[in-house]
């Protein structure tokens, strides 16, 4: 065991850490989802954790599902169900909103995220 050993091992450890970091930052998908009521952020959830949320909106209860890095509205008291039709949101910056019910969710995080989604 020499001093050079120590240096080499520590350097390699840094390399491993750096690769891991690059890997994490290279992800294009979101890391979290924020839920808004009337424009106020009321909750932030990890998107990897499977969850079934019920959220009270202006006109009733909406159901939001979170799983596998994605989130979506699955049930809503609104009539046009635009929020449900918007489907799964996965990329950072993506938004699904229910205007009548005053609820929205937005995906957060990831480095190749987009600042705005045009549709």
């Amino acid at each position: 065991m020499t001093r050079a050993d120590v240096v080499v091992i520590l350097l390699l450890a840094v390399v491993v850490g750096w690769v891991a970091m690059a890997q994490w930052q290279g992800r294009s998908t979101a890391t979290a989802v924020a839920i808004y009521r009337g424009g106020e952020r009321i909750a932030v959830h990890d998107v990897q954790q499977r969850q079934r949320l019920t959220v009270e909106g202006r006109i009733g209860t909406a159901h939001i599902h979170i799983e596998d890095g994605r989130a979506r509205f699955v049930q809503s008291p609104c009539q046009r169900k635009v929020c449900i039709h918007m489907g799964w949101q996965q990329y950072g910056g993506a938004v699904a909103a229910c205007v009548p019910n005053g609820l929205s969710l937005q995906m957060l995080g990831g480095s190749t995220t987009f600042d705005g989604i045009a549709s």
Partner: peptide, 22 residues
């Protein structure tokens, strides 16, 4: 050194990991 290496990997990761949710 073994522990040091593992600790360093962990530290590097913590330092550079993506921002926490929110």
């Amino acid at each position: 050194i073994l522990f040091g290496g593992v600790a360093l990997v962990l530290l590097t990761y913590l330092l550079f990991r993506p921002p926490p949710p929110g």
